Computed example of a mutant assay.
Amino acid sequence: MTPLRRLAGRPWVLAATFVTLLTGCSGRSTPSTPDASASWSAPGGSSSVLFGGNKSLLHQPLVGPKLAIVRTYHELAHDDFPSAEDTQALNQGAALLTSFGKGEWTSIASGAQDSAIRSFLTKVDQAAVDHHLGAIYVTFNHEADLINGERPADFVKAWDHIHSLATDLKVNWQDGGRIHWALILTQGAYAPARASRYWPGAGNVDVVGVDGYNAADCRKHPFTDTYAATGKPEQPAQLFSQAVSFAARHGNLPVFIAEWGSVPYHTARTRADFIKAMASYITAHPSIRSEMYWDAHGQNNACDYNLANDPTATSALAAMAADSRFQAKP
């Protein structure tokens, strides 16, 4: 299925100018060039949302088979696309939101890593063709706002250079390819003015992505406490509303919640309640077109977002997946 496109200034609709993709063949299809007067939007039917998560959720019996999009991660030095997780997700009919690169922005902007970048982009685009997907979503250096020792201006230069390489390869959706670009920052980066420092420009971004967690006071006790023992649970609006506003100000772009999760609380229902609150928040904001639960421990701390030992929270996430509002197809 092709991704939906949003006509400028209009509600989410199934535009008559859809790109036609040839499926059922092993070779590369050649979609028509999109109408320049229309801007692309995220997939889904009417108001439905792509339900997704990270690789761990692929192994959750109640949730894994329902994933429409899976979050995966790569580094240019390893040239390992598609990984086992990419392949498993693709074989299950899911799309990908996949990251590549980490730092080295000046080197990338100078062209020093062009060979590795071209290889990655070509493989990603071909994977979409091989699995009959209208889109695979790509982000360069997700959470760039957390990278120390690098300058935002160099991130923008690196992004622009990479996007130009993709244009030359004709793998961007505007040129008949399958790649759509998501800028992903942490929820804290979307404070007024800060995210703009990492903004590569409307022509180079298709999706505004945001990572945010209901961690409460867990981060104050690294490697000692997986629970939010005393902190007040955060609410979805606290985590994501500024990203939604940023996307609206930058061309009314669709929003992907690329990572989200909740730590357990000593009151068992709290995490399940947060998941239910997320479902309500997302459906109340039509610009949010995808969400991906992070089913793992936090990096560099002991915050535990994993649902394996929390049947109440797992059931809440499974109910979200079963909700017709979260059943968009890639």
Rank of each mutant, 00 (worst) to 15 (best):
G209H: 13
G212C: 04
G212P: 02
N214T: 12
N214R: 07
A216T: 01
A216R: 11
D217T: 07
D217G: 02
R219D: 10
H221F: 12
P222D: 04
P222L: 08
T226S: 14
T226C: 06
T230D: 05
G231S: 13
G231W: 05
E234H: 08
Q235V: 12
P236V: 09
Q238G: 15
L239N: 05
S241L: 12
S241A: 15
S241M: 09
S241Y: 11
Q242T: 13
Q242V: 06
A243N: 10
V244M: 09
S245Q: 15
S245E: 11
A248Y: 10
A248F: 07
H250N: 15
G251F: 11
P254L: 03
P254M: 11
I257F: 11
E259S: 01
W260I: 14
G261P: 06
G261R: 11
S262E: 07
P264H: 08
P264V: 03
H266L: 09
T267I: 01
A268Q: 07
A268H: 04
A268G: 03
A268W: 03
R269E: 12
T270Y: 08
D273S: 14
F274I: 04
I275P: 01
K276I: 09
K276T: 12
K276S: 13
A277D: 08
M278W: 13
S280V: 15
Y281F: 06
T283W: 14
T283M: 14
T283N: 15
T283R: 15
T283L: 09
P286G: 03
P286N: 09
S287W: 03
E291H: 15
M292T: 07
M292R: 08
M292S: 09
M292C: 13
W294S: 08
D295I: 10
A296V: 08
H297R: 14
G298Q: 06
N300R: 04
C303V: 05
C303Q: 02
Y305K: 03
Y305L: 11
